[in-house]
Design a protein around this nucleic acid. Structure first.
Lengths: 337, 337
DNA sequence: AAGGTTTATTTAAACGTTTAAATTGATAGT
DNA sequence: ACTATCAATTTAAACGTTTAAATAAACCTT
């Protein structure tokens, strides 16, 4: 249309060769008038680089997933990458939290095949729980970064530090003078549950305080069990001065159990949570809890990935990010006693 | 490698021509051994059909967005499409809810360009609020379906029925015997707020009940204003028998305002909400609220889109889905008085 | 005006796939 | 043995782009 060769148009488009002003203008006018758009598919056919990265999520409806995706997107945008999303939708497929994910190898293969077919430059896998995954992503010759989970074999990972933050939080509570602790842990067998408990126990051990085993119970991560468990902890004469629930949903259960027993928070019993979840946003008093670096996990995952794509970074790295403690009034400001 | 032409391999792969068993086996063996994957980019270069649809979301961190995406994904998976996600990240860019989105025309153009460049077969645009959008997506010759918002010009949309469900909910409350209503509306100028109010007013009018204007206030969609507004409504001698909050966050504010004034829910004052949000999941008594058909909006958006892609459906359709009322104990079961 | 240099443009091959058309090979019917 | 038919395979063009190499055009030098 402009009376020039396709090569000339390509050079105008990319500025990869000197072009006379006359020609450039002519070509640019035609481009505007016709609304021409370059076909990225054809482009990456030659270059074998798509500037596309695949995000493979176990389930997009799980609260942390969109936050992480958002973080990935921010860096991707900045670095000129685009993302293609594959959603395994495991929440609606999986029977139990502990069902072996290998049962979904086929689904994963299908999605990975398609991402590889799209010539993605790399893949970020976002888990629904933080746990170790068996080798499920077949080698497509491109780097893979795991986020909110970590691989048994090849691949990097980005997670947050469950143990450390609970160690800190517990330390803070000890400093406030609390001595008789109750813990409502997560689901038996869940890794973050174990790590958080470990952080707690480490702080207690260092403080030289023995925690009676009947004060450390499991709450199954949910409101109902959290409430029941809190009931058990509080319905004794020597009930804990503070209950550390390992997530906010259970902490809400603790609030309700306390209210039921006529106990005031934080005067009679203090409470802490974990997650900084919507569910506990407006309970009163404000819950002391832990904010996870979800967006930041996305940043780091994407940065790690691009560094591996460009070969600047080695393949097997694990990044563990710190969490932030959110203050609140569910613990006495002036300290205990 | 198999000693056959590329055409033969293509025919084996797609089963589009008769192939001898010997050849097929040979080719399939090589495919297995080498881990060959077909390049979808090269494929769609000829066919000009990518079986890719673009999801352009205003902000993925807004609660309804992942739900809608999940719905889209379910249908996409079933129909053999894949989705490429573009996240405008407007929440972190936009100054106020009512800022003119035209300020972000450039961002949208960039994303649409890239989606078009990826040869998507269609686009689903997911809004962050339900509202009318000016013509922002330049014509790429592919169908566009709007979800959780609707276009001024060309394009279909999928939304839910704010007015109807509030008409129904109000009717239900009238049937229970409630007469003195208080309303905590959404933000002034927000369309869903206006529609919900309209449904309420219609039901009241049909029942022949006058609602004093001082009983219909705005709460800004948030907890704080909801609580303050509830305080104003309740701190009168002839306070409403029931307060209908136009979302759950404000409803939680109503709970707290009532508690503060020593009023019991539902004995002294009943409460309803809207959204079925996490924030109100474990308040007591259980909140009567409205569940929005978020997943279903995704289903319909995707179905509408594929029908338009295949030309079976005309371009400008608007689908309005019904909501579901969630029962609860924040309203007297036996009816009022 | 011839030659040399620089600048601008075109040519042609390549990327990995599909598909209409052409070719080859085998089988069957005369 | 020849032709017709059918099945299996190959050839070659096409999709839209990039880029090394070739060519053309313009401008200097002498």
């Amino acid at each position: 249309m402009a009376g020039v060769s396709v090569a000339t148009v390509s050079y105008v488009l990319n500025g990869t060769a000197p072009i006379s002003d006359k020609t450039r203008e002519k070509v640019e006018r035609i481009i505007r008038e016709t609304g021409y758009r370059s076909n990225m598919l054809a482009k990456s056919l030659r270059t074998n680089e798509s500037r596309l990265i695949g995000i493979l999520v176990e389930d997009i409806t799980v609260w942390h997933t969109p936050q992480i995706i958002d973080g990935i997107n921010e860096i991707a945008e900045r670095q000129g990458y685009h993302t293609i999303l594959s959603n395994l939708r495991l929440m609606s497929k999986i029977a139990s939290r502990f069902e072996d994910i290998s049962n979904y190898q086929e689904d994963i293969d299908r999605e990975v095949d398609m991402l590889a077919g799209m010539q993605v430059d790399g893949i970020i896998y976002v888990g629904m729980h933080d746990r170790m995954l068996p080798e499920m992503i077949s080698d497509i010759g491109k780097p893979v970064v795991y986020c909110y989970c970590y691989p048994m074999g090849r691949g990097s990972s980005v997670r947050y530090d469950n143990e450390e933050v609970l160690y800190q939080l517990t330390g803070l509570m000890l400093k406030k003078g609390y001595r008789r602790f109750g813990v409502i842990g997560g689901l038996e067998g869940s890794e973050p549950a174990a790590l958080r408990l470990k952080g707690f126990q480490r702080a207690m051990k260092e403080a030289g305080i023995e925690v009676p085993p009947e004060n450390v119970l499991c709450g199954g991560w949910n409101y109902k069990e959290g409430r029941e468990t809190a009931g058990k902890l509080l319905d004794r004469k020597d009930f804990p001065q503070i209950i550390m629930a390992m997530n906010d949903e259970m902490a809400v259960g603790v609030y309700d159990a306390a209210t039921e027993l006529g106990l005031k928070i934080p005067e009679d019993v203090a409470v802490t949570g974990f997650d900084h979840a919507a569910i506990a946003q407006h309970i009163s008093p404000e819950l002391v809890t832990v904010e996870r670096p979800l967006q930041a996990m996305g940043y780091h995952a994407m940065e790690l990935l691009t560094e591996q794509i460009s070969g600047r970074e080695e393949e097997n790295q694990d990044i563990i990010l710190p969490c932030r403690i959110i203050p609140g009034a569910s613990v006495r400001a002036d300290g205990y006693r």
